[in-house]
């Protein structure tokens, strides 16, 4: 291959090196040129790079091929593969994960209310009852049972309740439980994982903007 194509462009940005892949040519051209560049340019040092496939949709196989190719010819590691396009499934997944699912009932002992996305409960969660959500949990009533936010591992999720008196609060893989002595519940509180202590903490609801300013930001959540 003698002619010089511009199918692969590398740019330095604030977030490190981004490799832009042309989205019009065939995937084989991309691979060839990428290989050429890697071999000839002799990129030195081990850095993290981001691959941006622009308007091309990369299948899982193609992603693996890219990662392998880069691994063979350089010490670069692919941190992230970005794209402007999504499959319908992952768009739907994202939609499910970021929308609020409202239920109007009392979650009673023995009942488990499972939700993909944020759970809004209009009613109480009684002792022995549980709410599981992949996103946040908001209870417009008394939370006296178990609330598990971020069941799929999102540690940024919170649990908020008009009246907080839970058996347990779980966020991602962290668990906190009520103390062994009798406690009164408290009105308008929310629970979150404090990144510095890695523990679940409670705070007054009016402090939520300060502690989780990006709570409702769709792009912060699993894109």
């Amino acid at each position: 291959m003698s002619e010089w194509n511009h199918y692969v462009t590398m740019k330095g940005t604030n977030n490190g090196i981004v490799v832009y892949l042309d989205d019009q040519c065939s995937f084989d051209f991309l691979l060839k040129e990428l290989e050429n560049k890697l071999v000839n340019n002799q990129t030195s040092g081990a850095t993290d790079i981001t691959i941006h496939s622009q308007h091309r949709y990369l299948s899982e196989d193609q992603r693996q091929t890219l990662i392998q190719l880069i691994g063979q010819h350089s010490e670069l590691t692919v941190k992230n593969i970005e794209s402007y396009v999504l499959t319908r499934e992952s768009a739907y997944e994202l939609y499910e994960h970021t929308t609020v699912k409202t239920v109007m009932k009392t979650i009673r002992s023995g009942q488990v209310h499972e939700v993909k996305g944020d759970a809004l409960v209009i009613g109480d969660v009684n002792p022995g009852g549980a709410v599981h959500a992949s996103g946040n949990i908001f209870v417009l009533g008394k939370l006296r049972g178990i609330a598990h936010a971020g069941v799929e591992g999102d540690e940024n999720c919170i649990v908020a309740a008009s009246y907080m008196h839970p058996n347990q609060i779980r966020i991602a893989s962290k668990i906190s439980r009520a103390p062994d002595y009798d406690v009164q519940g408290s009105p308008r509180e929310f629970a979150f994982i404090n990144p510095s202590t890695e523990q679940i903490e409670l705070d007054q609801l009016q402090h939520i903007q300060k502690i989780r300013p990006k709570l409702l930001d769709v792009f912060e959540r699993g894109l």
Binding site: R108, S109, N126, G128, G129
Partner: peptide, 8 residues
């Protein structure tokens, strides 16, 4: 607790 379960 059991009454709550039954009501559910």
């Amino acid at each position: 607790r059991d009454a709550d379960r039954i009501i559910g």
